[in-house]
Amino acid sequence: MRIAVIDDYQDAFRTLDCAARLKGQDVTVFQAPATSEAALVKMLKGFEAVILLQQRTAMPRRVLEALPDLKLISQTGRSTGHIDVAACTEVGIAVSSGGGGGPTATAELAWGLILSVARHIPAEVAALKAGRWQTTLGTGLSGKTLGIYAFGRIGSIMANVGKAFGMKVVCWGRAGSLSRAKEAGFDAAHSREAFFSLSDVVSLHLPLNTETRGIVTASDLALMKPDAILINTSRAPIIEDGALVAALRQGRPGRAGIDVYEAEPVLGGDHPLLSMSNVVCTPHLGYVERATYEALYSTAIDQIEAFAAGAPINLVTA
């Protein structure tokens, strides 16, 4: 089977233990992203299967209809919102999406961002390399309020670490989310307004879908304290378009740690957040660690092997 592995930015796939399971197959790994639909069609011409890493590349109808040889999309992770599944069904492309990742890696990255912003770690590292010593005064977390928006698998880890740091943890989200938080011994905010106005750190952990797109509004951000920190390791569009940059320029919240962007990858430093001294930016590293890659790609290979054996698994239909 001719298999394409796309968007492997670090050329990591070849180094994974699970990659050896495709020995004997015709596998091509692409590091550079396709910059247009036409480029994506050209890249995938002649391939029978493609492994997608998370939601790095969209698969719209126009692309799918132009790939007559493609028979399987093996998706890492469970989200298929970037794939036109209905079009896949119509043109005879199977979509398998069975998960494989876990919440810990993203929670670790979120805490890395919180600590980096609160203690000015990137700025102090740069200053030290430039010959200066102690140029900022950091903010401690003990006794501060950590706001968790959505108490799911990642949010629960974030809350427990916050508790270990001596923070007061308050949660916000849908009824089910708040119920889980209360069962775990954490407080729910009295209102949405109280959640944003009283939290010293707000960490967002919502999936992106039609209900959550733009769910954090400019009005929400305007309620935050001037010295508060906003953390987003989920998806950029859960924040109202343009609201975050404007809010940070206006000083509410005063700081942010951001791992996700409206259009990815961000190349050439072309994003307004990258020029802001009150923001620590990382290139969507939430799930980018070896154990998670092994789990994600191993599931994707399971799906390819099952499809080749005539018994596809984890099928997604429109």
Rank of each mutant, 00 (worst) to 15 (best):
R132T: 11
C281K: 10
S74W: 07
A12M: 11
V280S: 11
Q31G: 07
A127I: 06
I238F: 00
S219G: 07
M1W: 00
S96N: 04
S74L: 02
I313K: 14
W172R: 00
L113A: 06
S74H: 02
L72G: 00
G254P: 15
Y261R: 01
C171M: 09
Y293A: 05
V63M: 06
S74F: 04
Q31M: 06
D227T: 15
I304H: 13
E108Q: 14
V5W: 00
L115R: 02
A291M: 07
G286Q: 07
S277D: 15
G152R: 06
Y293G: 02
P60R: 04
G176Y: 01
P68M: 02
I73W: 08
T106I: 14
S179E: 15
D270N: 14
C281F: 07
K42D: 15
K71C: 03
P283Q: 06
T76H: 12
L113D: 10
G101I: 01
T210A: 13
G81D: 11
K163M: 04
A123G: 04
V245K: 03
S96F: 04
R180M: 11
E294N: 09
W133C: 05
E65Y: 06
V288R: 11
P68H: 08
S116Y: 05
R255F: 15
D187I: 10
C88M: 09
L273N: 11
E65K: 13
L16R: 01
T57I: 02
A4G: 10
Q303T: 10
E294Q: 13
D84C: 08
D220N: 09
Y261H: 06
F47C: 03
F307C: 00
K168C: 03
D302P: 02
P265W: 12
M1E: 00
A32D: 15
K225G: 01
S116P: 13
W111H: 01
T212P: 06
A4P: 05
L146D: 13
R174F: 12
C88I: 06
L273S: 09
T233W: 03
V216M: 03
L53T: 09
K71M: 02
S199A: 13
L109M: 13
L221P: 01
L244G: 14
N160K: 14
I258N: 12
A243H: 13
S199F: 12
D200R: 05
A164C: 12
T233R: 02
L67D: 07
G242P: 12
E37Y: 07
M158K: 10
S298K: 05
R62H: 07
F165E: 12
A309N: 06
D17G: 04
E289A: 10
G155I: 05
A189V: 08
K163Y: 03
E183M: 07
L70N: 10
K23W: 00
S298P: 01
F30L: 04
K71L: 04
G143W: 04
I83H: 13
L70P: 14
R192A: 04
G112H: 04
Q54M: 06
A127Q: 11
A58L: 09
G286C: 09
L146P: 11
V125L: 08
A159W: 13
A19H: 00
D187F: 03
D200K: 03
